[in-house]
Nucleic acid binder design. Structure first.
Lengths: 337, 337
DNA sequence: TTGAAAGCGCTAACAC
DNA sequence: GTGTTAGCGCTTTCAA
């Protein structure tokens, strides 16, 4: 490993001169800076961050904790954040929790241990109390999901409104037997979404039959099973409203496998917007969430506070509105009551 | 920040005793260890990795460099690797290059600077010579793409064979006017894939018309344009063979927009296997690449070498075979010559 | 079984 | 404008 001492030895100057030259200190002559920089690139010098940090210089690592990076929500977030952080010379450290609170705690400890400048996290369903304790030691902000326990700052999406709007759309098409397939109410997002669904239904002046399939954890498999259960009812729902990304692919696969015609036999509103939704049958009507914008906004805000030592404790929520994308999978029911 | 000194002060022992107790040194009495551990959790002590590293202890960070995490190839890789590394207590640091060699170099320097234990990378098209120089200082291994310049160890996929097989499939269906839409030959993967395409064509005993659309960089937009160009030919190809993931969605979107009937008007073989490919029209026939397995194998191998100080210099290639998934988008041409 | 002390590479306060 | 020196938190000799 090449250190500033080595460079100092080569140029016959003191280590501090080299250090200052590399830090572009204004007390160092241009000539010396030139020589030092030349020698540094010559021998392939790379500053030792560990040593810097021991001197109190802040780390340029930011931890990102998400459930599963393969989920396009989270890879979009990771991408947007890494772009955003890069511009300020920060690196992203990726941690996956698989929605496991112990794993989450382990990652938080680990990140604290490497002195990350901050942590951006999508918290798990029921975080460990110790996670909150360790997070107190590090600037952090929550994304998408919000757990009171972990802090007061949050960038999220209006989940209630997302489902409110997709349900309203279905109602406006004339459906009166509607099923909701979503995640558990234990997750704040899950709770907000069913709530949105229920509220929308309440606004209807007609009598509306509803079925709720709330699964934990959300998964394609749960989506499939929910569809099977719903189709076996005497009175089948004429429309399906989905309230979790992970459920969506299972639901639409099952509908395809059962050879139902969409939207004739059944209308479907998806959640999230994966690449392939537009290819499915007549195109899946869905609520699109502005995840990329959200992550960028979050990254900028976070950076701003890291750099200005601003406090990330005062409660603040940034709520971003969803957008309904209407494709071919929703229409009026073929035989309304 | 809580240090071992603080714990030492609380327990009225020396810092070294605390350090040893935490390291589970066998010379420390069980009683003392118990007290130290209790005090440590009590006050929320977290070891300072920076300080450890200064003493020569290896970092537990592994750098992952990929072009774009939103690409499902790379998010799959990131997921598989992070699982794999987690079991050995390593963390993943994510870097996106956007296929930009300067960005790649910057990331490599940065990673060297934080003393990562190693680097796993999907190299860019034409890496900067300095990247090679800095990589020499750190254990590293290449994934998917292989650049001689950057090192000798590589875990990849048999790209030549992937295209060889998809082309063979198309030929066996009876097509004689075939177009290839893929990436530039400047990338090793791109080159191998066209080569596979050409070799397959050569095996045919019939006369086969081919068109090659090689784009750089690959993108949905390029895919769309390529399709438009191909469809405007007097003699339209009856089959399309795709040789790049990024092109695939553009190609199939354009075919859908042009309202072509697949496979009647044209047959299509895709590349990679995104979630939505099975929803597109009659289902997209495609070559599936075992990316997850590949990444896991790579992670295991890498860990093994990190932990055993094994050398990662001796040339070694691990090549994984692709698999053709036949769905509905390929059939015999409706009006063969 | 425990303590004292050196030193990793760097920065910054203090000299000159 | 440049050199000297102390010290960040930890591990690891060497001493006791």
């Amino acid at each position: 490993m090449v250190t500033i001492k080595d460079i100092a030895a080569i140029l016959q100057v003191s280590p501090s001169t080299v250090g200052r030259a590399l830090a572009d200190d204004r007390r160092i002559s241009a000539e010396m800076k030139r020589k030092v920089n030349e020698a540094a690139t010559q021998v392939g010098y790379v500053a030792n961050q560990a040593a810097r940090m021991m001197r109190g210089v802040e780390s340029n690592l930011v931890g990102l904790i998400v459930p599963d990076i393969r989920n396009s929500f989270y890879s979009t977030i990771a991408h947007a954040l890494s772009r955003c952080l890069l511009s300020a010379n920060y690196q992203l450290t990726l941690c996956e929790t698989d929605d496991d609170r112990m794993l989450e705690l382990r990652h938080i400890k680990e990140l604290t241990s490497v002195n990350v400048a901050g942590i951006i996290l999508v918290p798990s369903a029921k975080p460990h109390p110790d996670s909150a304790r360790f997070l107190k030691m590090t600037p952090h902000i929550q994304l998408l999901r919000k757990q009171q326990l972990l802090g007061e700052q949050w960038f999220g999406i209006d989940d209630r409104r997302a489902l409110y709007e997709s349900t309203l759309h279905i109602l406006s098409e004339g459906h009166r037997r509607i099923a909701y397939i979503g995640g558990t109410e234990a997750l704040p997002t899950g709770a907000a979404r069913v709530q949105g669904f229920r509220e929308a239904v309440k606004t209807s002046s007609h009598q509306v039959d509803i079925h709720e399939e709330l699964g934990a954890p959300s998964s394609p498999e749960f989506g499939r099973e929910a569809v099977r259960r719903l189709l076996s009812l005497k009175e089948r729902p004429t429309a399906l409203v989905i309230g979790a990304v992970q459920n969506t692919s299972g639901v639409i696969d099952e509908i395809q496998d059962q050879a139902l015609s969409v939207p004739r036999d059944i209308s479907v509103v998806g959640f999230g917007d994966e690449l392939g939704y537009r290819w499915w049958g007549p195109g899946l009507t869905t609520v699109q969430l502005p995840v990329s914008q959200l992550a960028t906004a979050c990254g900028l805000w976070f950076l701003h506070h890291l750099q200005n030592k601003g406090d990330l404790d005062t409660p603040y929520s940034f709520i971003s509105p969803p957008q309904l994308i209407i494709r071919g999978s929703t229409a009026a029911p073929s035989n309304p009551r």
